[in-house]
């Protein structure tokens, strides 16, 4: 960004030096809210991915879970047990551990789903933009029709269809993949549109023409030459989509078509807790709910900041 037009005599600055010198880092250090959000996201990611080592118990090991421990309130309430800081759920699982493991499931589904969506979208966008013509209009018409429908509706529909196709498979084995596929297929449009737009511009630039004249095959030109020049804006979409994907996963699980109670995500935990709301066991739904809300809010704040930081026009 701020790299000087380096004279051939001077060494180009190292990557680290460029990071330290960049506008992005400066704008990051200026915004307190963003720093707090980044710390929260970092803590949640670490908690999720190291949950087997951090969590006090393994909520999925039937040997350590006792039904007699069910519905114990948080430790600071009357009847609480210091063994279970945030209380237990209906099956006697430690809620704190279940949230860490559930967070991991939610993030895995979200990350894989977004990765799938980005892969599909970037591929189709490159194809549409670079090849143009029929391919372009076909892909973009599909995108237009799909964009008419909200993602959650499409995800639900795909979820039903995929489960109809794998009807005889065990739901516990397939649930995670079904979710990833639903999220991937419902969020690809935005990537395809963005990539197509910038590819249309890049296609006519000299370096692409030169590569064509040299006789490089089209796939190689798309991947090695066009892609690096159009990938920038995708970063922002990725961040904001991660929040959306996590919400979508939680919603599907809450609706009972996502992850089963045996391998709960945050959405499944909330859905379990929802059943015990009326018996006054507020903690089963509250803690996973708050975790989900904080995660989404923090990721959204990071995404907003990234959008502003990468878009000099808004500064």
């Amino acid at each position: 960004m701020s790299a000087q037009p380096a004279s051939p005599a001077k060494q180009p600055p190292s990557l680290w030096a460029r990071i330290l010198d960049s506008d992005i880092l400066a704008s990051f250090l200026r915004s307190k809210v963003t720093m707090v959000a980044a710390v929260i996201v970092l803590v949640l990611f670490i908690g999720a991915f190291f949950s087997p080592w951090i969590a006090p118990t393994n909520p999925f090991d039937p040997a350590t879970v006792f039904l007699s421990d069910a519905n114990i309130p948080p430790a600071w309430q009357q009847g609480g047990d210091p063994k279970f800081i945030l209380g237990t759920d209906d099956q006697g699982r430690d809620l704190y551990s279940a949230i860490l493991y559930g967070l991991r499931v939610s993030l895995i589904v979200g990350l894989l789903g977004v990765a799938l969506a980005a892969t599909i979208g970037i591929t189709l966008g490159l194809l549409a933009g670079y090849l143009g013509g029929r391919v372009d209009s076909l892909i973009m018409r599909i995108a237009d029709v799909q964009l008419t429908f909200p993602a959650i509706l499409i995800a639900l529909l795909i979820d039903g269809v995929v489960r109809g196709i794998f009807k005889h498979a065990n739901r516990e084995d397939t649930a995670l993949y079904v979710l990833v596929i639903s999220i991937g297929l419902s969020f690809w449009v935005q990537y395809a549109r963005t990539i197509r737009g910038s590819t249309l511009v890049e296609r006519n630039k000299d370096y692409v023409q030169a590569a064509r004249l040299v006789g490089l095959p089209a796939p190689l030109i798309m991947l090695r030459h066009v892609l690096p020049n159009v990938i920038g804006p995708v970063l922002v979409i990725l961040t904001i989509n991660l929040a959306l994907a996590v919400i979508t996963e939680a919603t599907l699980s809450f609706l009972g078509v996502g992850l089963p109670p045996t391998q709960p995500s945050l959405g499944t935990l909330i859905s379990i807790g929802n059943r015990y709301l009326f018996s006054g066991d507020w903690w089963i739904v509250t803690f996973p709910g708050v975790t989900l809300a904080v995660l989404v809010l923090a990721v959204n704040l990071l995404g907003d900041w990234l959008r502003d930081a990468l878009n000099p026009r808004l500064r």
């Binding site: 929040a243 919400i247 939680a250 919603t251 809450f254 909330i270 709910g289 989900l292 989404v296 959204n300």
Partner: peptide, 10 residues
């Protein structure tokens, strides 16, 4: 904007 619909309902 960040709260999932079902959490608001609950």
């Amino acid at each position: 904007v960040s709260l999932p619909t079902f959490l608001i309902g609950i």
